[in-house]
């Protein structure tokens, strides 16, 4: 288990806070003095998973770095909705340069901090780079791979919502198979996004053998905070991919954002695990196993799989992908896990 074990206190560790827990055992988000790195007034859609995931992650990183944190942001929803010139929602030092160079900008900041420290100037300032899946798995992939390969002292956080949502829901290399986007319409013999080879960047990051790779979702706050905190305690290149449902792009109800993230994990569609130096160290086990339909049917981007003539074969292929994740990362529900 990657989570701290809290013996049964009415809700265990499932809720954000818990009045029965000692204050030091509570989550960062339960704290009245949390940073609120991404403040109110941002222009994200109702129920935005990315806005939530970014606040969860950066608030935890702020605690772990004792407030000494700089963030480099790729172009994408997170940049556009948070910082329309001249306003910003960020309450931390934050820089945006281009779509594809967030990892390189962060590398540069880390190098500058290193030099300053060698000259005896400035304290131990940490660097985070962040972006959506488009800026990470497609456009910024070269810079990211270089950052991994050089083992630069940067934590890169990818908020994965499976597409270019900001520009009108186009397909990215993180878009799931069969999903409808503006560029993969549900038409023809194989409607929606084709079943390609897939591009799961956490596995690619692991192939770089960097010190720490993890995945998380906005449905498991404790797990997410634990992973960000752990990553901040490590020097070198680190990568965390957080699944952040997008009500707009996924065609889901705004109140279902956390439910969808939870179902992605519970069905095995999104494996939640952590790896060190290329080896999987632990996985968050499935608590209430569900078939993939439970996840798919809440989203209009998969609506063409259901209806009068359900695409049984396609759903079976998606189920096979989930089953493979369950096998590969050891996600089976275990007795005694909550």
């Amino acid at each position: 288990m990657s989570l701290q074990t809290v013996k049964f206190y009415q809700t265990g560790t499932f809720t954000v806070g818990n009045r029965l827990l000692a204050p030091e055992e509570r989550s960062v988000q339960a704290n009245m003095q949390r940073t609120n790195s991404l403040n109110s007034g941002h222009r994200a859609c109702q129920g935005c998973g990315e806005a939530l995931g970014a606040r969860y992650a950066i608030d935890a990183a702020m605690i772990a770095s004792k407030g000494q944190l700089i963030a480099a942001n790729a172009t994408g929803c997170l940049e556009v909705f948070s910082t329309p010139y001249p306003e910003t929602s960020w309450q931390i030092p934050w820089i945006h340069s281009l779509f594809g160079n967030a990892a390189a900008v962060a590398t540069g900041i880390a190098a500058a901090i290193k030099v300053k420290r060698q000259k005896g100037q400035g304290g131990d300032v940490r660097v985070v780079a962040q972006g959506g899946d488009g800026g990470t798995t497609d456009i910024g992939f070269g810079c990211l791979s270089g950052m991994f390969e050089r083992n630069d002292d940067v934590l890169y956080i990818c908020y994965d919502n499976g597409g270019y949502m900001n520009t009108g829901v186009q397909r990215s290399s993180a878009t799931p198979s069969a999903a409808r986007t503006a560029t993969t319409m549900p038409l023809g013999p194989e409607p929606g996004n084709p079943f390609g080879q897939g591009k799961f960047v956490p596995a690619i990051a692991m192939a770089h053998e960097i010190p720490y790779v993890a995945t998380a979702t906005v449905a498991d706050l404790r797990d997410l905070e634990y992973k960000v905190t752990k990553a901040m305690g490590i020097r070198g290149a680190r990568y965390i991919q957080i699944l952040v449902p997008c009500p707009l792009g996924w065609g889901a109800a705004s109140q279902d954002t956390i439910l969808l993230a939870r179902l992605a994990k519970e069905t095995g569609i999104f494996p939640v695990f952590e790896a060190e130096f290329g080896e999987v160290k632990s996985a968050l086990p499935i608590r209430r196993p569900q078939p993939v339909e439970e996840y798919l049917k809440l989203q209009k981007r998969f609506a063409h799989l259901f209806g009068k003539n359900p695409a049984v074969a396609t759903i079976a292929r998606i189920q096979a992908q989930a089953d493979k994740n369950i096998r590969r990362y050891g996600l089976q529900a275990r007795k005694g896990d909550h």
Partner: peptide
């Protein structure tokens, strides 16, 4: 232990979930 099994149906027990899950800090 038994008291803590109560779900507190319909009455806030200050679990901080609303405070945590709001994407808008509202």
């Amino acid at each position: 232990f038994e008291a803590r099994r109560c779900l507190s149906c319909g009455n806030c027990f200050e679990c901080d979930n609303c405070y945590g899950v709001c994407p808008d800090n509202a």
